[in-house]
Structure formats: structure tokens, C-alpha cells
Design a binder for these strands. Structure first.
Lengths: 159, 159
DNA sequence: TATTGTTATACTCTATAACTATA
DNA sequence: TATAGTTATAGAGTATAACAATA
């Protein structure tokens, strides 16, 4: 009985220390599933505030004034699309266009106070993502952050 | 000089062992950025094969026959949308509709051989995601997999 | 001549509502 | 009556091509 418990404990320890390494396909599938779930969580939170996911994504970029062209780059879409997206946000009072003092061709987009407050709430209401992160303790979150930081340079390289 | 090097080494070691824990906001932002990047990587790979991201996502669900209604659930969209998406995939010969022998209301969607091959290539061509994962060694990938597995239940719970 | 933002166009995705054929 | 799939409709995102204003 005593040895049985010891063996069980040993097995658990070894399983925790040296779990089966996942195949690349398994890891890829898991990353894809979580990426999709996280995106849908964001879209659902945006929808509760009457925003499409792209509108919310644009709003999330506006830490300062950004030219229309820059928004197209950030959203990875054609510049012609940005006109309509900003039109709809502007008609709701969430952003405004400002002329650029140094280049009269450029219009800078700025979030209004209401726009900033709205995107703040959207972020706060990503319930699935928040509750998922709550499943980890501080040490695990630190480890996850470190690993994701290692992943970032590869993900942001554009083909 | 000797002590200087020792101190540097000690500092590096301690930094590696006990890095600053990230705030929840930082971790959230990093997860969101990687989720978006991964999604855009998938969309770009799909586009190279003439597929929209939703079409590719649907194709990726077809490990076996799936009713139209089930696809709407998997894609988190209204059932009426699935008709058009499947129409376009079917006209390109990537999927086909089959009658369900047990319920004549149901149509099951099945990927054709060409459909399976196409989605296989899309997955293989997610270059940003692949190169990001290549930045980790096996031990790190195992650790990442374990942490993401812990995240999954929270992400998949629907609000 | 090149760039910024816009418009016009055509296609796809999206939800809502109504319809049909089954169950 | 309830459900599966479809159709019709309207709004939004998307790329392409062309345009005016500015650099």
C-alpha cells in the first residue's frame, strides 16, 4: 500500500516533468483553435457595443493620431476600405478625421473620448479570454508570456 | 572584473528564473496580437488557393460528413450563410452535398479529394505560424502545448 | 511622377425573416 | 408543432481600378 502510493506519486511527477512532446501538427491545431476562439470572443464583445470586429480592431489601433494609409497597413487591407470603416465610426462619434499640418494630403484619424471608452469596455468584456487566463496561476502566466514573446517575432514577419 | 562577470552571470540567471510577471493586460494584449496574426496568416494562405478565410475554415471542419446545421454551429454563424458558402465550394468541386439516409431533411457536406488536398496545403503554407513555432525547441513546445491545453477549456466555454 | 484619400464596382459574408419539406 | 435547408433582402467588409489634390 505504501509502495503503491509512492509509485503513483512518482508516476505523476514523471508525467508532469516529461510529458509526451506534441507533434508540430498537434501544436499547430491547438494554436489555430485558440486563435479562432480568441478572435470570436473579440468579435462577440465588439458586437455587444454595436461594432463589427473590423471596426473594433481599427479603434484598438488608435493610441494616437494615425493616417488613413497607416490604418490600412495595420488592418492588412486595401486603403480604399478604410474610408468606409472610418466613415461609419465617425458618424457614431467614436473617431474623427483631422488634417495633418505637415502634409495636406494626409488625414489623421483620432479616437474620441467615447471611442476610447468603448474599446476599453470591449477589451474588458472578452469573457472567454479572461476566464481562460484565470485558469493559470502567476507562475504559469509568466511562463506563457515568455513563450509567446518568443513566438511573436516569427508571427509578425510578413511573407 | 572577475566579480563583475560573476555578478552579470548571476543577474542573468535570476532574470531567467524569476522574470517580472506580466500584468493581465500585457498578457491579454500579447494573446490578442498573436491570435490576430495567426488568423491573418491563415487567411493569406487560404487566399493563395482562391479561398476566403471562411471557406477555408469550413473546409477545415470536414474530417467526415457534417450536416449544414452543424457547420453553422462550428462556424458560429447563422445557418442561412452556410448555403452560400457551401454553394461556392461545391461549384469549385471542393465539397459535395449528400442526402442523409436517416433524415431526409438533412444534407451532409463531405470534402472531395481535391478539397482535402487543398486544405492540407493551406495548413502547410501558414508560413508565419510555422516559422514562429520553429523558434522554439522541443522542450519549449511541450511546455507551450501544456499551457495552451490549460487555456482551452476556458476559451471554448460560450457566453 | 509618386502618393494620399476617395469613389465606383463587383463579390463575399452577415443576420433577419419568410418559405418548403420533412419529422 | 418543430426542425433542416433554402431564398430574399439589406448592411458591411473586401480588392480592383480610376480619379482629384498634393507632394
Amino acid at each position: 500500500m505504501f509502495y503503491g502510493l509512492k509509485l503513483l506519486e512518482y508516476t505523476r511527477t514523471m508525467t508532469a516533468i516529461t510529458p509526451q512532446p506534441p507533434t508540430k501538427a498537434q501544436l499547430l491545431e491547438l494554436v489555430a483553435a485558440l486563435g479562432t476562439a480568441q478572435w470570436q470572443d473579440f468579435a462577440a464583445a465588439a458586437a455587444r457595443h454595436g461594432l463589427t470586429s473590423v471596426q473594433a480592431k481599427l479603434l484598438a489601433q488608435l493610441k494616437g493620431p494615425v493616417p488613413m494609409r497607416g490604418l490600412a497597413t495595420l488592418l492588412v487591407c486595401d486603403a480604399s476600405n478604410v474610408t468606409g470603416i472610418v466613415d461609419r465610426l465617425e458618424s457614431r462619434g467614436l473617431v474623427r478625421r483631422e488634417p495633418d499640418p505637415r502634409d495636406r494630403r494626409v488625414k489623421n484619424v483620432v479616437a474620441t473620448d467615447e471611442g476610447l471608452e468603448t474599446i476599453r469596455r470591449v477589451r474588458a468584456e472578452m469573457q472567454a479570454t479572461h476566464s481562460a487566463l484565470d485558469a493559470l496561476d502567476e507562475e504559469e502566466r509568466t511562463a506563457l508570456y515568455g513563450l509567446l514573446e518568443r513566438l511573436r517575432p516569427g508571427m509578425e514577419r510578413r511573407a
